Simulated assay, not measured.
Amino acid sequence: MPIEREPCVYILASQPRGTLYIGVTSNLIQRLYQHRQDITVGFTSRYGVHRLVRLEMFGDMEAAILREKQLKRWRRQWKINLVERDNPHWVDLAIDLGFDPLASSRAKDGS
């Protein structure tokens, strides 16, 4: 899967319009696994921020890091607007990358 080794900026959310986390990585699949399994103790594990709601791919890591820094300076509402522009229902995009739905997502779906 080519997406695994491409620099990208991603936004995770705890729930629609919930707590947000912005990160950058060159291995999205591995990084999502780490977040979703709470492998590293930190912000995302503490606040249950595991739902991938936005992804931006870049040609090089330098551009990705600049974008991450830019987004982190944005006001919260701007970040919400950015997510909702392309993902108005806050769908967990990680499912399309092969991840299982989150437990909270399954419970809301009634499965």
Rank of each mutant, 00 (worst) to 15 (best):
L52S: 03
R17H: 03
G110K: 09
R5M: 09
H35G: 02
Q30W: 08
N87P: 13
G48W: 07
D109A: 14
V41Y: 07
Q30T: 13
R73V: 04
R51S: 10
K108M: 10
N81D: 14
A107Y: 06
R76P: 07
M61T: 15
L52P: 05
L52A: 05
E6F: 09
S26Y: 09
R31T: 10
K79Y: 00
R46W: 00
P16W: 04
I22E: 02
S26D: 12
G110C: 01
W78C: 10
D96Y: 01
R106D: 06
E84V: 08
L93K: 09
E4L: 13
E84N: 06
L12F: 08
I11A: 01
I39H: 11
R5A: 10
S105C: 01
R36K: 15
D109I: 03
S14P: 08
A13C: 04
E56M: 04
G42A: 06
W90D: 10
I65D: 15
F58R: 06
E62L: 12
Q70I: 02
T19D: 08
Q70C: 02
N27K: 10
S104M: 10
G48A: 07
Q15E: 15
V91R: 10
P2H: 06
R5G: 12
R67W: 05
E6Y: 11
P7L: 06
V91N: 05
V91K: 10
I22C: 04
I11Q: 03
